[in-house]
Design a binder for these strands. Structure first.
Length: 268
DNA sequence: AATCCACGCAACCGCCGAATT
DNA sequence: AAATTCGGCGGTTGCGTGGAT
């Protein structure tokens, strides 16, 4: 893989220049130069990175830092209503596939969305469901913090199963909810958040996603798996990925590009 | 003014699949 | 074909902040 190596090189350079300065300098674990266990990683790369930066950080740690914080174009905070709406809907559809959800929210990281969900939306959903009303009938009930997430299979024959996905890159998305939305940039019109607009239909590019239909289709699909984890992963050939892309009329080109992963983004 | 507590968020951990040797 | 390495993901942890008492 050329890109990740280039990324590591870029990180080394960047880290050497800016270090792990924290603009916010507050919450979370403040980047430090304290020794960090180099678990999982990759001896070689971690040594290279730590030697190159003097930070005693493994490549994984640096990568994470880069992806979630240092990478250009990261949007932080101020999640808009339409973004929030999209998160809710996608979570209902995809489950805790944060990277996949993040792929549909330009500038947002999976970590941020995950945090946002766990801290804000889950509570809101809990209140919503607790009040006996649900704006999003398809959405999964909020996951308790320790719920174990995907390991919990929904009750048989009752609620729907989220699409099980794995490592399906989706970096660009068109959310063509309304005419002129593209040109208007992120300032999504208020009607985006309206249920009758979002409803059970989302437009991605020229493709109208019938979320209800998609989910129904996956509910009925046989690959739910007997392992309680949803079985096969989305990215595997001949499994959900193909099914969904076929369902959506997308169809990748077989080399990992095209299809869901390369939906054009005109949002930003 | 001091203390407590809940919250937000960056970072860490463990696992898995893909790629490479 | 098997073993090893690497990249990526989701879940969890723990620190700092700000509000409440």
């Amino acid at each position: 893989m050329a890109a990740p190596k280039a990324l590591i090189c870029a990180m080394i350079i960047l880290l050497g220049v800016v270090g792990f300065t924290c603009p916010r300098a507050s919450a979370g674990r403040v980047p430090s130069v304290a020794p960090v266990p180099v678990r999982g990683a990759s001896t070689g790369e971690s040594n290279i990175v730590s030697a190159g930066t003097g930070l005693n950080r493994c490549g994984k740690s640096c990568r994470l830092r880069w992806l979630n914080y240092l990478r250009p174009g990261i949007k932080r905070g101020n999640i808009s209503n339409d973004e929030e709406e999209l998160i809710v809907r996608l979570h209902g559809l995809l489950g805790n596939r944060w990277s996949l959800i993040a792929g549909r929210l330009p500038g947002r990281t999976d970590n941020e969305i995950k945090n946002y969900w766990n801290t804000t939306l889950s509570k809101r959903m809990l209140q919503s469901h607790g009040a006996g009303c649900s704006d999003h009938p398809q959405a999964k009930p909020p996951l308790p913090p320790q719920a174990g997430g995907e390991a919990q299979a929904p009750p048989e024959g009752t609620s729907s199963s989220p699409i099980r996905t794995k490592a399906l890159r989706c970096t660009n998305t068109v959310l063509a909810v309304a005419e002129g939305f593209h040109e208007q940039g992120r300032a999504a019109p208020e009607h985006v958040a309206e249920e009758d607009q979002l409803g059970d239909c989302l437009s991605i590019g020229s493709i109208d996603l019938d979320l209800e239909g998609i989910e129904l289709g996956f509910m009925m699909s046989p690959w739910s798996g007997a392992d309680g984890l949803g079985g096969q992963h989305f990215g595997a050939p001949g499994t959900e990925a193909d099914d969904l892309e076929e369902l959506l009329g997308l169809g990748g080109d077989g080399d990992g590009h095209g299809g869901l992963g390369d939906l054009e983004l005109a949002w930003l």
